[in-house]
Computed example of a mutant assay.
Amino acid sequence: MAQRFGGKYSPDGADKGAPVPDRGAFRGARRTRAGGRVNLLFFAPLPLAARAFGAGPVELALNLAALGTLLLAAWLTREGILAQEAYEARKIARRPAIPRKIFASGLTGLGLGLAGYASGGGVMEPLIYATLGAVLHSFAFGLDPLKDKGMEGVDSFQTDRVARVVDQAEDYLRGMTEALKRAGDRQAETRLERFQITVRDMLRTVEDDPRDLTAARKYLGVYLMGARDATVKFADLHARAPNPAARDKYLALLGDLEQNFTAKTRALMQDSSTDLDIEIDVLRDRLEREGVHLETKDLA
């Protein structure tokens, strides 16, 4: 049989010898919205500092107060966007405890009002500045999530447990990331990112079915805390004096943990599939007892 020729430079060809890039560290990654426009909010009020020191004491105090208020509003805006991104990334999440972006809108209006009053205007002009600033900030950056997500029709006790475990696991992962930055080892950081993706796969599985929490609690608690502690110790040791043997042991530990977390996640998903099969069989038997005959024998 004839075989179609194909090579590296063929239209449909590919270089089979070329290494396949590892994209695991970027799977599910999204560009953060806490940049660009948000960064401009930190620079926009800086001219108030120059204007403050070119006027009298009253104008000085008002302009500095406006500057501080607007910078605080910019910081709250950035933190609010980061909190919303974390909220949107989860299937089960509580609304942010502090509505940062709403407070930022109010502070933006207050800061613009103070700046307008410091320029020598009456009461009406600063009020217009304050109202427009608060409204435009709300339109530009939106409001904070005002309700919990993924908790409708689900046992609140179970969802509370899942939310607490997920928050704790995310704290462990952040601690590992911050600790490993001290080591300055980019390869180890990339390896850690791959492990964190595996952990978050388990977190999403538990969020989909809170009944899996009991089986996964040891992994998301004891094992993850141990991985965090090992990362901190390795980072401290590597920052003082690079130790190739310790580095190899740490990377091997991450590999073993990744394999175990992956296997456990697959087992949890298999258990969920088994539960679905049982529910389908029970429903089919009940319908047949009531005289309803199904045409399809396998609903799974």
Rank of each mutant, 00 (worst) to 15 (best):
Y117L: 10
L112I: 04
L76F: 04
T190C: 01
R186Q: 14
I102R: 01
L268H: 00
S10C: 05
Y219C: 01
Q270Y: 09
L76Y: 03
G111S: 04
R266K: 15
R240E: 14
K101G: 04
K249M: 09
G6C: 07
G17H: 05
I92Q: 05
V154I: 08
R194H: 13
L114R: 00
R33N: 07
Q168S: 06
H238R: 10
R211W: 05
A74G: 03
F157S: 12
V165Q: 08
V199M: 04
A300M: 03
R27V: 14
V222W: 05
I98S: 01
F42M: 11
F139R: 08
A252Y: 06
T77L: 07
G116W: 00
D22A: 09
R286W: 13
K16V: 15
A227I: 09
T214P: 00
S273K: 14
E152K: 06
T296A: 12
M151D: 02
A2T: 15
L112N: 02
F26M: 06
R23T: 13
R31C: 07
K149W: 10
T159S: 13
L237E: 15
R94A: 07
P19T: 13
Y219W: 13
V135P: 06
D277S: 15
A241I: 05
R174H: 12
A140K: 00
V222K: 11
A29H: 09
S105A: 14
G113H: 00
T159I: 09
K233Q: 12
V232F: 02
L40V: 09
S105C: 06
D185K: 00
Q196T: 08
A25E: 11
E207V: 04
K91G: 13
G56N: 14
G24N: 08
G28L: 03
L60C: 05
V38A: 04
D229G: 08
A235S: 11
E279W: 08
F53E: 12
E288R: 11
L40N: 11
Q3K: 15
R31H: 12
V38N: 00
A169V: 02
R284P: 02
R4A: 10
L224Q: 00
A65L: 11
L107E: 01
I92S: 03
R33C: 01
T177Y: 07
Y219T: 03
I98L: 06
R51D: 09
L299F: 15
R27E: 14
V20S: 10
D209R: 07
R200M: 12
G28W: 04
E207M: 08
L224S: 01
K147G: 07
L257Q: 09
L67D: 00
L112R: 01
R211F: 10
K249E: 15
Y9R: 07
A83H: 02
L72Y: 02
E295M: 05
A163P: 03
L143Q: 10
I278L: 11
A50L: 14
T231A: 14
F157E: 14
R204H: 15
A230Q: 03
D298T: 08
T69E: 10
D171H: 15
E170Y: 06
G116H: 01
G17F: 09
G121F: 12
L67G: 00
L253R: 13
T190M: 13
P126N: 04
D212C: 06
D281K: 09
A49D: 08
K91A: 12
V135Q: 11
K297P: 02
